[in-house]
Design a protein around this nucleic acid. Structure first.
Lengths: 228, 228
DNA sequence: CCACTTTGTGTAGAAAATACACGAAGTGGC
DNA sequence: GCCACTTCGTGTATTTTCTACACAAAGTGG
């Protein structure tokens, strides 16, 4: 744009990566190496490059800072307070991502020394306006999980009804009646029983289900609307 | 940010301004004077200035291009396709706004020659990716109007039940039973009867109501959740 | 084989959503 | 002045959805 002579902002992408396991909902944080805020925890992020759209920047950040590929993510909000970064005029197009947290992933991050999964209710002080970004993402997640089937992105491919219910209880911060919950989910016909059962638990093992993506898309065309 | 040596995008704000009256839901369009797309219809927009956050840019655009002050608006989505503007790398932080359309406003825009209120179902071909932006805004409006009391922003301060219902029917593209609708709204206790009646209509005049913002905020604190 | 934990399942009552019709109020035309 | 026309304002019965609640069966660990 040769005729545009005014100052331009730097544009960055920050990612709120949510990971869930049975001990709760977590966020991936990375420790800053450089100033400003050297040594402080922050969200994984990076600058948008030329010939890259912000979604591609987010993919790149997820891969390089979190080792994550092919995970669900979505644009969240664009933060543009002029004083949000002491280095100057930096606008951040925040995204959020959802992944199932495995114990391997948690240990891997610990080895990386400089990144960690932190429980959403135990966040440390964060660099920049990253706390505000996380709060915004939590609100979005709470709302969206009720009218879109994105909760499944936080679970392993095969999961028990109990895990699904616990997930919803964690996110929505409520308790749900087991029978009513199962009735509702059964009514939607979005879960497919795998026939497999939980292994290595000291009690009656639960069936494993998976989310039926094809079915969801079919039903979507017929005007079906997920709601919990 | 002195250490950042890479190319930077230009950042713009485009606004989808929705205006409703009894003939339907409209969008404010402006005719482009300059190339690219000279003579084509487009959304009102502008570049983000230094020391300005995108919300402030939106306010400025609404005022200068639409003559609108103190209207409801909200960030929508950030569009960053690298080929969205032939002039170069321009990212747009789209916003949407809601206003009640009066006949004066419509005539005023016609005089301005170069801007017009167009029915959402009769949009012309638009410059850039502005059609995609409008489509995104319509989806957002359809969703949000159901779980947040933003529909009132599209009505005059005092309105009849019928207008409110028609508004919802227009946006959600359904028909609603009059008695059930009124029962539901009455149950929420968010409407205050003004005691006034419609004037100059050739039939039994309807009561005029207004939205009780204070009440809504009070109820919000008590965990009330608007839903239609 | 006993103790422990978690699974899997049905029903009755309460609350909410839906479907539906007619007399009353006001204007405009004759 | 009165008739035609249009829209307002209101209640009830039926169906559907939501909620609350308990116990036998499956499997592990000691």
């Amino acid at each position: 744009m040769p005729t545009y002579k005014y100052p331009r902002p730097v544009v960055a992408v920050d990612c709120v990566v949510f990971g869930w396991n049975e001990s709760g909902l977590h966020v991936l944080l990375v420790k800053r190496e450089k100033d400003p805020f050297a040594g402080k925890w922050s969200l994984p992020g990076g600058f948008v490059k030329e010939n890259e759209k912000t979604g591609e920047t987010a993919e790149r950040v997820l891969k390089t800072k979190g080792g994550l590929k092919n995970v669900f993510f979505e644009q969240l909000y664009t933060f543009s307070n002029t004083d949000r970064d002491p280095r100057g005029w930096i606008i951040s197009v925040a995204h959020y991502a959802l992944v199932g947290l495995t114990t391997e992933m948690q240990e891997q991050q610990k080895e990386t020394a400089g990144s960690d999964w932190v429980h959403v209710h135990a966040l440390p002080r964060l660099a920049f306006d990253h706390r505000e970004i996380i709060d915004t993402a939590v609100v979005r997640l709470k709302n969206k999980v009720r009218y879109a089937p994105i909760g499944f992105e936080l679970l392993p491919d095969k999961f028990t009804m109990r895990q699904l219910q616990q997930l919803y209880e964690d996110i929505l911060d409520t308790t749900i009646d087991k029978r009513n919950f199962q009735k509702k989910l059964a009514g939607m016909k979005l879960l497919r029983a795998t026939g497999q059962k939980q292994q290595g638990v000291a009690h009656k093992p639960a069936q494993l289900f998976c989310f039926d993506d094809k079915k969801y898309k079919e039903l979507g065309k017929k005007g079906f609307h997920f709601e919990l």
